[in-house]
Structure formats: C-alpha cells, structure tokens
Amino acid sequence: MSGADRTLQRGNWKRLAGYLLLLGLLLPTMPLARAADKKDETKLPPALIKSAPENVKDLQEIQQQVRKVLDKVIPCTVGVRVGGASGSGVIISKEGHILTAGHVSGKADQNVTVILPNGKTVKGKTLGSNRTIDSGMIKITEGGNYPHLEMGKSGELKRGQWVIATGHPGGFKPGRSPVVRVGRILDVSDRAIRTDCTLVGGDSGGPLFDMHGNVIAIHSRIGGRITDNVHVPVDTYRDTWDRLAKGEVWGGGIGGPDPNLPYLGVRLTGSDSEGCKIEEITPNSPAAKAGLKPGDVILKFDTTDLKHPDDLAPQIRKHKIGDSVVLEIKRGDETLKMKLALGKRPE
C-alpha cells in the first residue's frame, strides 16, 4: 500500500477528534458557516438515501434532484484565468469570494480573469492558499451581488453518497456550459475526498456538491484509475477562512512548494552515484550569485557531509530565509569553499 493511501484512510478518527474541536472554536467567528448551519435542509428523496437505486422510479427521483441542484449551482460555477493558466472555481459570497484549488490561485495578489457561465468576464485577485492540502481563494474585485452558494459540511459526508461535479475541463470554452458529472463518494477523510466524478486538467478548483447543492469540496487532482478523482474538503476552507481571505500562502506539497522555506537555486543531476552534482543553476538565485556552476559537486553543507542527491534538501529546510551557510564544492580537481545567504523562492 502506498503512503498516500495510508494518509487517506488511516488516522481519520484521531484527526477527526481534533478537527471537531477546532471547528467548534472557530464557528462563532464564521458568518458563512453559521448561515449554513441555520439553513433548513429540505429532505432528500428516499432514492438518494438507499445504498443503490432499485428501479426506474428511484433513478427518476435522483435525476429530478440533480436537476434542482444544477439550476442552483450552474450560475455560480466559474472559469478562472491566472497568468497563462486556466482552472475553475465556485462563488460562495455575494461580494464575490471564489473557492478554488491552491495550485490554481498560486501566490496572492495576482490578477485573475473570472469567466461567468454566460461568458461575461470580470476582474479578480488571488487571495491565500494552503499548499499542503491544495485549497485556494480568489475574490472578484468589480461589481457585487453575485449569485453564490453555501458551503456544506464535508465532515459529515459518507461513502456512497451521491455527489455532483461541475467545472470547465480543458478550460472555459465559449458555447459550452459548465460540464456536469454525477458520481459517488468512494473515500472520505478530513484532508481529501475521492469520487468517481471524472476530472481532468482545467477542472482544478471546480466545485463538488452534495444533493442539496451545497459546496462540499473543490477539485484538486487525479490518479491512474478512472475512479481516482480527488477533491479538497470544504471544511478546510471554513477552518482557515481568515488566513485565506487575507491572502496568506502557507504550507507546501500538493498545491506547490512552501514559499516560506529558504531557496538555493540548484537542480541536481539526481544520479545516486554522482552525489550532489549540480545540473542547472537558476539565474539570479543565491547559488548563481555565489558563483556555483553546473558540474560542481556539493560535498559539505556547513559541517554536514552530503553523499546522496537526497541529502541536500533537508539541510536547506533546516534554515530560514536569509541564513548564511558555507558550502564545500568539488570543481574539477579543486575543492572550494563558498559562503552564501539562502534566499526566497521566486514565484
């Protein structure tokens, strides 16, 4: 079993306990969450409660409910363009807050073009993201009073529950409405949800809905099987709302490298037998400024010997941006010592 799978299945209970407590503490300051709580959820048709539809009548009940949800959620499903990249998003406040994936919003305060389902575009800015779980936020910066949806409670989701995905696979295409997929929850934890609603590039940031039409997760990534479609649970957005809304970017992993970690600016050949041999130097990086060259082999980082290509990154991570370090380098037959200051990762 792979490591990723383990994180998906194991430790749910342990994390869940801490998670509920945290949620309880945060709730009083969360107007959006309160609104969702107060909402009087109409009852779902019985077919959606069954473990599987048994006949055509059940299927009809499901499809009627899907239609109801789509009428509500399609106007709030948007396309977003950040730089040269496009993804999807969902509007969740009348002022135009948009939930998206962390790898879509990227760094804070970038210009965004938001494409509404009718093809109209409005301007926006990226806000914060949690790169560890790939959550991100965008805000529309012009106009107001946007149609918007409630955030549901991803902590209450169950395996087998029917869900709806919308988004813009392949990016927004004029003349094509947001693309609808219906499926079921196959796995759920507090960090990721897996469904059989198929996703592909361009869907990133698009919403997953429960059968009430509440946003329960945001599309993030896919795996090798057609049933490996992974979404970021919406509770994580609610829990970190203030940080996301004020434009904080933190964590590292699925949504991109951690911007708060120091940066050297070298790419190694990665060959086990060559140790930390440099293949490429990023221009203007600390490594470039110190005079490191491709072909150099880093032998020592401060006092630690480096033997394997994997030995370098942990040494860098021990430091803070701005720290001075001494590298011992082998260049041809010479051994050199270089002092340099670790910098900030360019975006």
């Binding site: 792979s2 799978d5 496009s86 990227g106 796995d187 795996g223 699925i254």
Partner: peptide, 29 residues
C-alpha cells in the same frame, strides 16, 4: 487546450506524484 495544460504543468510533478501513488491502491480498496 494548451492553455489549461500549462496550469497543471506548473505544479503537476507534485500533484501527479501523489495521485500516481493513489493509483497504486490495493485491490482491497
């Protein structure tokens, strides 16, 4: 098509590493 793919290209080595791992799930799952 090219445009959206650049979105994924930016980050996908990480994202893909994880999901490829997911893809290797056990038969039990």
């Amino acid at each position: 098509m090219v445009r959206f793919s650049s979105l994924v290209a930016r980050r996908s080595p990480l994202a893909l590493a994880l999901v490829v791992a997911l893809g290797l799930a056990t038969p039990v799952l």
